[in-house]
Amino acid sequence: MAVPRSIAEHVAFVTSLVSPLPARSMPPETGFALAVDAVARLAVPPFDNSAMDGFLAHRADLPGELRVVADVPAGGHPVRLGPGEAARIMTGAPIGPDGDCVIPVEDTDHPAGPGPLPATVRAPAFSGRSHIRPRGDNSSPGDVVLAAGSPIDAGALAALISAGVTEVHTHPRPRVAVISSGDELIPAGQPLAEGHIPDSNLPMLAALARANGAADVLQLHASDRDGDFRTVLDEAATAADVVVTSGGVSTGAFDVVKAVTSGHDMWFGSVAMRPGSPQGAGLWNGRPLLCLPGNPVAAFVSFHLFVAPVLRRLAGDTRPVSRVRLAGGVDTFPAAGGVTRIVPVRLTLDGEITAEPFHSRGSSHLVASLAGTDGLAVIAGGDTIDIILTRN
């Protein structure tokens, strides 16, 4: 009997089947990962500017009563200041060669808020802080704003635009085809005959693919007949960058996925985990094919462990998987029992992290208990449990 693979070994195998999709140039957009470092073209900030609402002045004139000669709003122009002069200035307004400090309005005798320009303002001694943000204080032209392999999220988008980056090289988001197989599966909403069940895996895996960065998701179903499955699989491999199947990978008499694809650059075997031990992976018509078990919880777990890393690699996303470590409450989880157990959990973040197993039994068919799960507890024995975070 073949020795089961470890989870890490199977992750290494499935990710070796793919490479990042060819890069292309495009304006910055969220949801894409960089293929090449994005380099700043502008300084951030692009000019010296005020960090406070207040009065621009010369330190040498403080403390004292200053003559107010101008207003400088955000978007305005720098002003010239002579000895004993000040300008009322707003946060973000530009500062020219004159004036070397901003006195916050609350430190003066002038009331805060809108109002006419005062003729004079009384300012205290210099506090030691200029309240001036110098040009390039955050980044300078030529600095790397976002490194290759990083995804563009909302914060990164703001950083790129502020740094004058108008074109980036990114990897496309992968196209995914999901195939459910089995004569017992009926599309959602249709009447169930005896012995049939709703096909929950197909929409679940499609939703997980979208949540993990897929651009397009093709949903297909195949019967347990070899010819039907082969036709559907060929269609999927033509349309997608990666194909994911659920069901038909164990040792049953009607395990069509294994029957059709075995011997075609494919591996089928066991991974040392529960649920989700039966797995398959390889190439079909040159496309990566990941074959997951059919039990819904096993398919859910297997997607996060094996399909999500493949999608990240295709998209060029090099971030590590997010994890937290649970030191307390370990006794509420089932014992590893000689094999790594994977338990979906709901997390509570209230000063400390607590994790609740999705169901007291943890069986792979308990799909009705998957709602609201936040992560996967990896139970391998010991006094701590690592939790892979699954919510994006």
Score class of each variant (00 low, 15 high):
214 A>Y: 01
316 G>Q: 06
51 A>N: 09
81 L>G: 07
259 A>L: 07
333 F>T: 01
390 T>S: 06
309 P>W: 07
195 G>L: 07
156 A>P: 06
254 F>P: 00
86 A>Y: 10
283 L>P: 07
356 E>S: 09
15 T>M: 00
109 D>E: 06
7 I>V: 14
6 S>M: 05
342 I>M: 10
320 P>S: 12
164 G>I: 15
117 L>R: 15
3 V>Y: 08
245 T>W: 01
80 R>H: 10
308 A>H: 01
122 R>D: 09
38 A>L: 13
92 G>S: 09
98 D>C: 05
367 V>H: 10
306 F>I: 03
380 A>T: 13
322 S>G: 01
306 F>Y: 14
359 H>I: 02
93 A>G: 10
365 H>S: 08
206 A>D: 01
209 A>E: 04
85 E>K: 03
286 G>R: 03
173 R>I: 14
285 N>C: 01
82 G>T: 07
237 A>H: 00
97 P>R: 15
331 D>P: 00
146 L>D: 14
46 P>Y: 02
125 A>I: 06
136 G>R: 11
27 P>Y: 03
180 S>Q: 02
96 G>P: 13
124 P>C: 07
184 E>C: 14
83 P>Q: 15
334 P>K: 03
310 V>N: 00
82 G>Y: 07
298 A>H: 03
351 G>N: 13
300 F>P: 04
213 G>R: 11
133 R>A: 06
199 D>Q: 07
309 P>Y: 05
261 T>F: 00
5 R>H: 07
376 L>I: 04
341 R>P: 10
206 A>K: 05
260 V>N: 04
144 V>F: 05
94 P>T: 09
139 S>L: 14
273 M>N: 11
209 A>C: 07
116 P>G: 09
126 F>A: 10
172 P>M: 05
205 L>C: 02
361 R>H: 15
18 V>L: 01
229 F>H: 11
351 G>C: 09
17 L>G: 07
150 S>M: 12
199 D>I: 13
382 G>L: 11
52 M>N: 00
42 L>W: 14
101 C>F: 11
40 A>V: 13
347 L>M: 06
308 A>W: 00
31 G>M: 13
223 S>Y: 02
226 D>C: 08
195 G>Q: 05
35 A>C: 10
78 P>G: 13
273 M>Q: 15
24 R>L: 08
112 A>T: 05
26 M>S: 12
92 G>C: 11
216 D>A: 04
132 I>H: 12
361 R>M: 14
375 G>H: 08
336 A>M: 03
38 A>H: 14
327 A>Q: 04
312 R>W: 00
5 R>K: 09
29 E>V: 12
